[in-house]
Design a protein around this nucleic acid. Structure first.
Lengths: 199, 199
DNA sequence: CGCAGAAGTAAGTCATCACTAACATGGCTC
DNA sequence: GAGCCATGTTAGTGATGACTTACTTCTGCG
């Protein structure tokens, strides 16, 4: 009697790619580009490492695929949040939506790791392009002044740091950390009010 | 006749450590924690790699030494900038000083890499502690409200991203990138005015 | 059925990396 | 000038990394 060999249906290359990207995002978010091994990603995806390379070519291509996926998620979130909202409330709505998006810390951490990986020219090119795309999108949807958009992104950036440092873990003992988390709670509260139908 | 053997004076362990830290900061800034090899740092420092390990014990300890050094630099810059300045101008003065500090991009990039390396618990602990220290310092020296301090750091954070993406390299073709660099120029200009003796 | 093409793997290559053990040497003191 | 310690090196080690070659197995289709 040899190994049980459960009859697992094969998946299409496209399905596999999506699975792998989902898993790789988690790994890259935690370990960064250089701190993540394709071997670990393949193992968790339940495939051999050579097959991963067949599907993506190089580790860098895998990273870029993850980056595109994250970009799409954020872009989609912004567009959805702005949909049907009066122009002057768009920035606020997008801010709230971004915070929701960040509930899974991976989104945040991956962003951070993308910036950190920018010494690689190809990665930098992609990150620049996506970032620029978001900046233009936010400006267009909100009609806000450049400096408002700038402030919007500065806040987002600080949220990323908040997540990297996992400040919520020390907010009960460090006053400043609690203070750092407050803007986040504020926006959520404002959003809650909106969800309840008020104003 | 064998190799010329230039009579190089030996340096004290302390001197070596300082040299190595200086060089390692550049490497970590570009490659991040995982993307930097102790071998490369040792080579550039002109010593053997085992000796580097004798001086620092582990790669992580080397990184932490670099991080402490960067923290001291920033802290010193803030304190110097605030010295003798009326309280209500302290935030502005520190902002300008920070920008000066960032003229060498390594300072910025190293910060970014520190956040990215925070999945390591020991590094995270150190980064948290130093960051908290700066937040408290800024609050104390400026007497500003927490939300002002928060905004101050948010701006700093966005500067870090600006440096990572090297936006100045595309500012001439991408309008938004130029716009992103403007706040930076603004603060410098304000500072220039101050230096000229006016107001 | 048969077979072509897609899905998937076992085994290996070669480079690199963090870190070690053991040894060599310069310079200061007495 | 002898001895000693801090400063340094050479030569490894075992693990891991990205990536390849060559091969197998499943599955849909005529």
């Amino acid at each position: 009697m040899s190994a049980p060999r459960v009859a697992t249906r094969r998946k299409s290359a496209e399905e596999r790619r999506e699975e792998i990207v989902r898993i790789a995002i988690e790994h890259f978010a935690a370990g960064g580009y250089n701190g993540t091994s394709t071997e670990a990603v393949a193992r968790e995806a339940g495939i051999s490492q050579p097959y991963l390379f067949r599907l993506f070519g190089t580790k860098r291509e895998l990273f870029l695929a993850c980056h595109r996926e994250m970009h799409e998620r954020i872009r989609g979130t912004f567009e959805a949040a702005a949909h049907g909202v009066p122009r002057e409330d768009v920035l606020q709505a997008m801010g709230g939506a971004y915070i929701d998006l960040l509930e899974d810390r991976d989104t945040l951490l991956f962003q951070m790791q993308s910036y950190a990986a920018c010494s690689d020219p190809e990665i930098r090119a992609s990150v620049r392009a996506c970032y620029g795309d978001l900046v233009k999108l936010v400006g267009r949807l909100s009609g806000a002044e450049p400096h408002e958009v700038w402030t919007f992104f500065a806040r987002g950036m600080l949220l990323n740091v908040t997540a990297s440092l996992d400040l919520s873990a020390i907010a009960d003992t460090e006053e400043w950390a609690a203070c750092w988390l407050e803007p986040l709670a504020l926006i959520q509260r404002a959003q809650g009010v909106r969800d309840d139908g008020a104003v």
